[in-house]
Design a protein around this nucleic acid. Structure first.
Lengths: 202, 202
DNA sequence: TCTTCGGGGGAGGCGCGGTTCACCCTTCGG
DNA sequence: CCGAAGGGTGAACCGCGCCTCCCCCGAAGA
C-alpha cells in the first residue's frame, strides 16, 4: 500500500537487557530499520537531525526532566517519539503526550506490543498503557519533579552548594534544602555524589 | 506464554464495505476470531454477555448518544471496546475514552493499523488517532467526567427529573443543574433527549 | 569548634479543581 | 399562566499539590 521504505528508528540508550531486547524485536520485523542505537542524551539532537528517523524510542530515565521532551519535540517535529518508562502512571503518560510524545509504554509491555506501537506511532497514532480507573487513584503517586525541583536539580548537577543555589534561585537555603530532599527522594538517591553518578551520561 | 487462545472479537453493525473489510482483515490474522458480527445496537448487550469477547469493535454511528458507551462499558467491563468513528476529533476521542472506550479510530485508518490496534486494545492499551498540531497536548484528556458528574449522568440516563436526581443524591436542585450542564457540555449534547434514548433501549 | 550536608516534621500561603448553592435569563409544553 | 428544563454567571467552601520557610537532629569535614 504505502511502503515508501522501512520505518527508520532511533533508539536512545537503555539498560543493556532492554536495549538488546528492542534490537532483537525490531530486527525481526523487515519493515523496521534501526538507524542509530544507544544514543546518549547529549547526542540525541545531532543524531535525530542527521538521520531524521520516523520514530525515536526514548528512555524516560534518560530525561533530566520531562520538560526536556518538549524541547526535543519542538526541535524535531517530524519524528514520532515513543517514551519507554518503567511504570508510568496515567498522569505521567498524559503529561508526556502533552509535552510532545506520540506514545508512552511501560518497560514491562510485551514484545509484540512494542512492534504494534511502533507501527501505529510511525503514522502518528497515540498509544498509551491501560489505565484502570478503579485503582488508578490509589497507590502509585507521580514521581515527576515539580518545576522548582527541576530548577534545583539543574543547580545540583552543576555542583553548586545549597547556599549558591539559594542565591541563584532567589530563595532561602531552607527552601533549597526542602526541594533537594524531594529531588533525592523522587530520584532514589541519597546525596549529591549518587546524583552525579546518574547524570554522568550527559 | 500468553496465548490461551485466539482473541475473540465482536463486530457491531457497520456499513457493508467497512464490515466486509474488517472481516477480511481479521480473518487473515490467525490469532483473531470473530464470534459475532453485524450486531445491532439492540442486541449488543445480549451478544456481549453471551460470547464475552475480548474485544468489541463498535460503530460510532450506531450509538444514539456517546453516553450509551458508558452503560455498555459498565455492564461489560471485561471486553475492550474499540470505537470506529468517521472522522473523530481529539475532543470526541477523549470523551469516548472517558466513557470507557479502550481505543478510538477513524474509518480512514489503514488495515494494518486496525490489526495492531486490536492486539493492543485486547490487552487494555489505549490507541488514539493522531492529534492535530493545533491543539495537540493541551486539551487531550481534561474532558473527563468528575465522579459527581458521572452520578448525575447515571440518574439522567434513568430518565429522572432534576428534582428526583436532587433527592436521590441528597443535594439541591441547583447543584444537579450545575452538574447536568457540565455533563452536557463535556459530552457534546444539549439536552436529555440527545443524551438518552437508551434508558428504554435495553 | 564550626559549617555544611542529609533527614525529619510542620506551618502558612497560594492556586486550582470539584462540589454545592444562588441568582439571572429564555424556551417549551400542558 | 406556570412549571420544568436549559444556559449563563458567580460566590463560597474544601482538599490537594506546590512553594516557601522554620524548627529539630545527627554525621562528616575543615
Amino acid at each position: 500500500m504505502d511502503a515508501p521504505g522501512p520505518i527508520t528508528i532511533l533508539l536512545s540508550r537503555f539498560e543493556d537487557l532492554v536495549s538488546a531486547g528492542l534490537r532483537s524485536l525490531i530486527g525481526a520485523d523487515a519493515s523496521l530499520r534501526i538507524v542509530a542505537s544507544d544514543v546518549d542524551a547529549g547526542r540525541l539532537d545531532a543524531l535525530i537531525a542527521e538521520h531524521a528517523p520516523r520514530v525515536t524510542i526514548l528512555n524516560f530515565g534518560l530525561l533530566r526532566a520531562p520538560a526536556e521532551l518538549r524541547r526535543l519535540h519542538a526541535a524535531h517535529p517530524a519524528t514520532h517519539v515513543i517514551v519507554l518508562a518503567n511504570h508510568p502512571t496515567p498522569g505521567e503518560c498524559s503529561q508526556l503526550l502533552a509535552l510532545g510524545a506520540t506514545a508512552c509504554l511501560g518497560k514491562d509491555v510485551q514484545g509484540r506490543d512494542v512492534l504494534n506501537a511502533i507501527h501505529l506511532a510511525s503514522r502518528g497514532l497515540h498509544v498509551l498503557p491501560h489505565s484502570t480507573p478503579a485503582n488508578s487513584g490509589v497507590g502509585l503517586l507521580p514521581d515527576v519533579l515539580t518545576p522548582r525541583e527541576a530548577d534545583v536539580l539543574d543547580q545540583l548537577q552543576l555542583g553548586r552548594s545549597n547556599g549558591e543555589i539559594a542565591q541563584a534561585l532567589c530563595v532561602s537555603v531552607e527552601t533549597v534544602r526542602t526541594h533537594a530532599r524531594s529531588v533525592f527522594r523522587k530520584l532514589g538517591v541519597h546525596n549529591r555524589r549518587e546524583l552525579s553518578g546518574l547524570s554522568r551520561a550527559r
